[in-house]
Structures are given as C-alpha cells and as structure tokens.
C-alpha cells in the first residue's frame, strides 16, 4: 500500500521530511510513528496506517513533500 502525505494544515502547502524513525525493511505497526516532517515552526510525527513491512522509502530526509505525495510503500501484513 502507498503511504501518502496526510493533510497537516489547510493553509500550509509543503513540509520537509526531517527524519525517518525506521529504515526500509523494518516491520511497522499500525499507529507507530515512522517519520517526522517539519513546517516552518512545527514538527509532526507521521504514523503508519498499517501493520506491515516498510518496503520502500519514496521521499528521503531533506525532501519537500506536499499533501497526497507518495512518501513510502508498506506491504500490509498477511497480503
């Protein structure tokens, strides 16, 4: 499943990925914070919506992301 950048604000267009808490290949749990993004004055943790394995990081630390951008791919458990 694609993990898309969620909406964090109606008015803030873009954020920057500051760090990934997990690496490709890691098991991730639903609701586990797996990366952090930052706007000009706020940092936000983004959680995995699924149980599974993080098979691909599509946007690396330092890259700008907007709502709806695919930032990772997670293979759901049992699929």
């Amino acid at each position: 499943m694609e993990l898309k950048m969620p909406e964090i604000s109606e008015t803030t267009e873009a954020a920057v990925i500051t760090l990934w808490h997990v690496a490709e290949g890691a098991h991730v749990a639903k609701d586990q914070d797996i990366l952090e993004v930052t706007t000009d004055k706020a940092t936000l943790d983004i959680a995995s919506p699924y149980d599974g394995v993080l098979i691909k990081i599509s946007k690396k630390a330092g890259e700008k992301v907007e709502k709806g951008d695919v930032i990772a791919e997670i293979q759901e458990r049992g699929r």
Binding site: S9, T12, T39, A42, L44
Partner: peptide, 8 residues
C-alpha cells in the same frame, strides 16, 4: 481541527 497552521 487537525491543522497545525491554525494552531500556530
């Protein structure tokens, strides 16, 4: 409302 700019 989950809006970080609105909170700031």
């Amino acid at each position: 409302k989950r809006d970080v700019s609105r909170y700031i």
